[in-house]
Simulated assay, not measured.
Amino acid sequence: MDWTSILAIYVLFWVISAFIILPFGIRNHAETGVDMVQGQADGAPVNFRPGRVLLYTTLLATLAFVLFYFNYTNQWITVEDIDFFGSIERLAD
């Protein structure tokens, strides 16, 4: 696998991990008892910590990518393993 492919796949894992991590730990003004600023949306977060989000996102993406890469090199789960409907045989005909 080329390094550009590795980088592209890792970036995809990172973006997906960011969307998984973002909702955790966020509290709005109603949950924390903080007064709203004029013009603030009702669901705007009070305690957003971008550094923590970046750290957890990077850890989750790295773990997922390492599992993906080991599966890619060792072939633990292949297309034949997840072909529940016999699509490979139908395509061969």
Results as ranks from 00 to 15, higher is better:
residue 84 F to A: 14
residue 4 T to N: 13
residue 73 T to R: 06
residue 66 V to D: 06
residue 63 L to N: 01
residue 81 D to V: 05
residue 89 E to W: 09
residue 34 V to D: 12
residue 57 T to G: 06
residue 84 F to T: 05
residue 58 T to G: 06
residue 54 L to S: 13
residue 50 P to D: 02
residue 20 I to K: 02
residue 5 S to M: 10
residue 71 N to A: 07
residue 17 S to V: 02
residue 83 D to T: 08
residue 51 G to Q: 01
residue 83 D to E: 10
residue 25 G to A: 04
residue 77 I to D: 01
residue 15 V to D: 00
residue 12 L to R: 03
residue 93 D to H: 11
residue 48 F to Y: 14
residue 79 V to S: 14
residue 25 G to V: 05
residue 83 D to I: 12
residue 61 A to R: 07
residue 57 T to S: 05
residue 20 I to C: 07
residue 20 I to P: 04
residue 82 I to Q: 13
residue 35 D to C: 10
residue 46 V to M: 14
residue 75 Q to T: 09
residue 81 D to S: 14
residue 80 E to S: 15
residue 53 V to S: 07
residue 66 V to S: 11
residue 65 F to E: 04
residue 19 F to R: 09
residue 68 F to P: 08
residue 92 A to S: 10
residue 49 R to N: 15
residue 60 L to H: 02
residue 11 V to F: 04
residue 65 F to P: 10
residue 55 L to V: 05
residue 55 L to F: 10
residue 86 G to T: 03
residue 42 D to F: 08
residue 88 I to C: 01
residue 16 I to D: 02
residue 62 T to W: 03
residue 9 I to L: 08
residue 46 V to W: 07
residue 25 G to N: 08
residue 47 N to Q: 06
residue 24 F to E: 02
residue 44 A to F: 07
residue 78 T to R: 13
residue 83 D to S: 12
residue 90 R to M: 11
residue 33 G to V: 03
residue 23 P to E: 09
residue 62 T to H: 00
residue 44 A to G: 02
residue 52 R to E: 09
residue 48 F to W: 06
residue 21 I to E: 03
residue 41 A to H: 14
residue 14 W to E: 04
